[in-house]
Design a protein around this nucleic acid. Sequence first.
DNA 1: CGCTCGTTTGAGTTTGCTCAACGTTAGTGG
DNA 2: CCACTAACGTTGAGCAAACTCAAACGAGCG
Lengths: 289, 289
Amino acid sequence: MTLGQAIALRENLSVIYLILIKRICKMPLMNTPAFPALADSKVISFESIRVACRNCTLSTLCLPLGLTPEDVERLDSIVRRNRPLHRGDYLFQSGERFRSLYVVKTGSVKTFAQSTEGGEQVLGFHLPGEIIGLDAIDKDAHVCSARVLETSAVCELPFSRLEELSVTIPSLQHQMYRLLSKEIAHETEMLLLLGKKSAEDRLATFLLSLSQRFRKRGLSPTDFYLSMSRHEIGNYLGLAVETVSRLFTRFHDEGLLKVDRKHIQLTDLEALEAMVSHSPVEEYRRRLP
Amino acid sequence: MTLGQAIALRENLSVIYLILIKRICKMPLMNTPAFPALADSKVISFESIRVACRNCTLSTLCLPLGLTPEDVERLDSIVRRNRPLHRGDYLFQSGERFRSLYVVKTGSVKTFAQSTEGGEQVLGFHLPGEIIGLDAIDKDAHVCSARVLETSAVCELPFSRLEELSVTIPSLQHQMYRLLSKEIAHETEMLLLLGKKSAEDRLATFLLSLSQRFRKRGLSPTDFYLSMSRHEIGNYLGLAVETVSRLFTRFHDEGLLKVDRKHIQLTDLEALEAMVSHSPVEEYRRRLP
DNA sequence: CGCTCGTTTGAGTTTGCTCAACGTTAGTGG
DNA sequence: CCACTAACGTTGAGCAAACTCAAACGAGCG
């Protein structure tokens, strides 16, 4: 049971067999304290992931933010909701013609760039509500690849249609600008991370970033499962696998967190936050609601 | 005499005293093989940097790309051309309210983020035609600071007006999307650089990037002056000053380049390119015109 | 001329990498 | 259902790339 599936369950399926789920997942249900009481006898239907934008709880994170109901409807009409993808499936590969942006609906996706030596740099892990493919607009071709880390549902937004639509909906255009800008600002933070921070600082920052993103999605910020491997974390943070492993062990020993394979419990958020260096801007925002 | 000034001279001033310039700059004029014959007797007028977009040779690099003459005219009407800035002047500082995007017209600008420890991460060096401030749209506040590295002219584009305009000019909107996307793709490359590459690879990549950007601007790709200090280069590349210095010395000894203070001559581009690891996408693009 | 800043060079240190071994998990196929 | 295997994760030892500290030099500026 991973984050994406938990969200799928909570947000999109009205009725399921909890017990069935538990057996499928072979681990306790995480992040589902508010799981609705279950009574009926229907089995998971992956068709039900095809939720309209107006009913999607991710709409506050995704593109529809600030749009009128009518405009959301128009946006909804261009969204393609394909069948769920499975671990390892590609959303797109580097070099492919750019056609669509993708929004993670449930599950998680990693993006990565490849270099000639076969070397791979993980560029990001994308959680529900996050948009993928923005870097492909300029060259009209994907400059990185994207594969799903676990069974995931993804909305597809044909970019040409999105662009047409944004011509007629100024607030959508604004939202697009914000989205693109947010991505730039985020990568900027990553540059600071990779350029200046220590291994310890990097992992702490990574965990806190996940924590905050889970919180935004109404999930536990202190208790979650990682959908990516140690290798992928290390690659993302510019560290060797061994270093990541050792750091997890050390953090564990220092009482900062509990770690059991992919299951993470942040037991001392304060200490973890004290460990990372913040930018003054982040600092300022922290004091706001 | 630095790049920016050379461009200013070539592109914006119809008549100047070459000798006067030489004295001011106290070094030979670089990158000005096509310098127009000079005859008249007018002194530099910094007012003349106020070139309309339609006459600006940077328009192929900057926003007007692909716009009709009428639309360029409309874009031109919102551009503010302020007086030149001098070394160390701020375009904006982190935390400031976001009002405008800036396009370097002549000279060069560095952007950098600050962390609580007073640590500074240089995010980029911006040459003529390059746009600054795209990361501020989302939060409506600047998340990094920008200061000019040498006397520079900068066009200011009030973003609210630009946004209004882009609603009515679809090709401008498209251009904006491309621009934002390009920035993301560029930072992606930087992530790969900082995450995976060796010190040697980083400096080589940096020099080649400069080289290519100079070439695009019609300047010598092999003979140029750096407007930034070793310290700033090191900071940008995630290296210590000493490492940068040592690498320059080593590259020099290996016959890859000649370096005298800020004056760089790349004598063996091939070898330099062989040194850096390319992404398959870059590889593919390289084979195209 | 003397000051400061930027750069270079050397010496020693350290962080995080590489290599290697081993235990564990999960996926596969009989 | 279980055995097998490949991938993943942890741990240790040694190493090296790049950092820090220190000092000297040169350029540029008042």
